Computed example of a mutant assay.
Amino acid sequence: MHEYCIREAAEADIDGARAVMLDAVYRDFGTGYVPHWHADIIDPVPFYVTPPRHTLLVAVDERDGTVAATAALDARGPAHPPNPHWLAERFPSGETAQLRRVYVRPEHRRRGLARQLVDGLLEFARADGGYRSVYLHTYPHSPGALGPWKALGKAVCDEREDVPGGGSGVVHFEIPLT
């Protein structure tokens, strides 16, 4: 039985968190590292650790101290472009807690880590007091991506159906803050 410690990322966790995130974009998304999309992965500290309204949580395997999963939150709403204009207006920066980089290594999946991390992010957002909504987007082809988000919130835009030409195929969710 694995035991995990869920915590805010410490300096010693950053390399492990980066490895989890990079593995996900290569393995699960097939995009590899794209500087425009993934600058926060290469240097997560100024994106998630330093800003007071942002956070990076990790799940650390207590057996060996390795980072098994990540989840981040920041105050940046979805940008237009590439997202639909109305979506960027619905979730403005500063008022929106955006969940990002919720990734679990394959060998640690199906143990509730993503849910525990997201619960921690939601608690962080509620404690902040300045967020009015919680937003995230996911790619349906990513392993295990849609089910958990459908259970936690509601899809507000499925680009496969709601955007002419299919957009980028992303599904956008709003999760209740309360």
Score class of each variant (00 low, 15 high):
residue 105 R to C: 08
residue 105 R to N: 10
residue 106 P to Y: 07
residue 106 P to C: 11
residue 106 P to F: 05
residue 106 P to K: 12
residue 107 E to M: 12
residue 107 E to I: 11
residue 108 H to R: 10
residue 109 R to A: 05
residue 109 R to K: 07
residue 109 R to V: 07
residue 109 R to T: 08
residue 110 R to H: 12
residue 110 R to N: 11
residue 111 R to H: 13
residue 111 R to T: 05
residue 112 G to T: 05
residue 114 A to H: 01
residue 114 A to L: 01
residue 115 R to L: 11
residue 115 R to H: 12
residue 115 R to S: 13
residue 115 R to M: 09
residue 115 R to E: 10
residue 116 Q to N: 09
residue 116 Q to T: 08
residue 117 L to H: 06
residue 117 L to N: 05
residue 118 V to K: 04
residue 118 V to D: 02
residue 118 V to Q: 02
residue 119 D to N: 13
residue 119 D to E: 14
residue 120 G to S: 13
residue 121 L to I: 06
residue 121 L to Y: 06
residue 121 L to S: 03
residue 122 L to H: 03
residue 122 L to S: 02
residue 122 L to D: 00
residue 122 L to I: 08
residue 123 E to H: 14
residue 123 E to K: 12
residue 123 E to Y: 07
residue 124 F to Y: 11
residue 124 F to I: 02
residue 125 A to C: 03
residue 125 A to V: 02
residue 125 A to N: 01
residue 126 R to D: 04
residue 126 R to A: 09
residue 126 R to P: 07
residue 126 R to C: 04
residue 126 R to Q: 10
residue 127 A to D: 14
residue 127 A to L: 11
residue 127 A to C: 07
residue 128 D to S: 05
residue 128 D to Q: 12
residue 128 D to P: 00
residue 129 G to R: 00
residue 129 G to V: 00
residue 129 G to S: 06
residue 129 G to D: 05
residue 130 G to Y: 06
residue 130 G to N: 09
residue 130 G to A: 06
residue 130 G to C: 04
residue 130 G to P: 02
residue 130 G to T: 09
residue 131 Y to W: 10
residue 131 Y to D: 00
residue 131 Y to M: 09
residue 131 Y to S: 05
residue 132 R to W: 11
residue 133 S to Y: 10
residue 133 S to W: 03
residue 135 Y to M: 10
residue 137 H to R: 08
residue 138 T to N: 07
residue 139 Y to K: 05
residue 139 Y to M: 06
residue 139 Y to H: 08
residue 140 P to E: 05
residue 140 P to N: 05
residue 140 P to D: 04
residue 141 H to E: 06
residue 142 S to Q: 10
residue 142 S to C: 12
residue 143 P to F: 11
residue 145 A to W: 08
residue 145 A to I: 10
residue 146 L to Q: 14
residue 146 L to H: 10
residue 147 G to K: 13
residue 147 G to N: 14
residue 147 G to E: 14
residue 148 P to L: 15
residue 149 W to A: 15
residue 150 K to Y: 15
residue 150 K to N: 15
residue 150 K to R: 15
residue 151 A to L: 13
residue 152 L to S: 11
residue 152 L to A: 14
residue 153 G to T: 12
residue 153 G to C: 13
residue 153 G to P: 12
residue 153 G to R: 13
residue 153 G to D: 13
residue 154 K to S: 15
residue 154 K to M: 14
residue 155 A to L: 01
residue 156 V to I: 12
residue 156 V to S: 01
residue 156 V to P: 00
residue 157 C to N: 09
residue 157 C to T: 02
residue 157 C to G: 04
residue 157 C to F: 01
residue 157 C to R: 01
residue 158 D to Q: 03
residue 158 D to K: 04
residue 159 E to N: 11
